[in-house]
Amino acid sequence: MHALRATRSWARFKRNIPLLAMFIPVVAFYLIFRYAPMFGYIIAFKQYTFANGVFGSPWVGLKWFELIVNDPFTLKIIWNTFFLSLLNIVVGFPFPILIALMLNEVRNMLFKKSVQTLVYLPHFFSWVIIGGIFITLFSQESGIVNKIITLFRDEPVPFLYQANTWISIYVGSGIWKEAGFSAIIYLAALTSIDPTLYEAASVDGAGKFRKIWHITLPGIRPTIFLLLILSMGNIMEVGFDHVYVLQNNVVYSSSEVLSTYIYKIGLLGAQFSRSTALGLFEALVGFILVVTANRVARRFNQSLW
């Protein structure tokens, strides 16, 4: 019996050799580039210098975290991060749903395909392109938007240099880039709605809007819930690229978020320990939010894992 089991596991091992061979570099990748940096968070509790290295640097306890809590500007940045990403979700969330619902009602397939082709396109552009396009459109001296505005009033609007207009452009550019593409997932959900429901509703004399309200929307409700909860979980993640390409010094205090600040003080300012402490804070809050969001999603029988 023992011998049989041994030969079996030997046979299993022999067949697994190629799989193991291809899997070893994969494990190495995850250890070196995913888990080792997590271990690197210990420098948030140290006074890290290049010369002393991660292990040789002296411990400083919670010094950096105290610094974060006591620095009004850092707190302002944390607030900015929350505010911008909440705004992104609240304002941006309905757009993909609307686009999906509207595309679903189009009868001419060629028209539908053409619209889809165009609205999906910005998703594939780099944030560099998005930033370039928006700065070209909205620049104070030469932007086409201000050229049109000055036809009606004397002063051009410094869109990129006022906090509130900058934030509008920030949120708007995010919607422009992703709303169309995000509609795909709702379109997929829409295909699973039973078409006989619509026929039955027509027989009962329901109009277009009643059908959308009572059949289409309930049909994609689970998807809407799931995506809303998950986006809540990502609230700490304000993408570096999106802010960085639009930012300028004039709106610095309302546009600076954690990821851009960590880059500036950490890499450009070489304050490794302080920026790592901020990074750890960001990652921990993000982790807690995602796990909580998934808990909530599970309550609706929709969960990621």
């Binding site: 940096p37 960590i262 920026s275 982790f287």
Partner: peptide, 28 residues
């Protein structure tokens, strides 16, 4: 037939939820 598939999948998925961030990755 492969070994510890569940363990590795979870270990990999965990890195989607919690990651080392900019500075520690830079140091690596």
């Amino acid at each position: 037939r492969f070994y510890a598939r569940r363990f590795f999948t979870l270990a990999f998925v965990f890195t989607m939820l919690f990651n080392g961030g900019l500075i520690p990755t830079y140091l690596v």
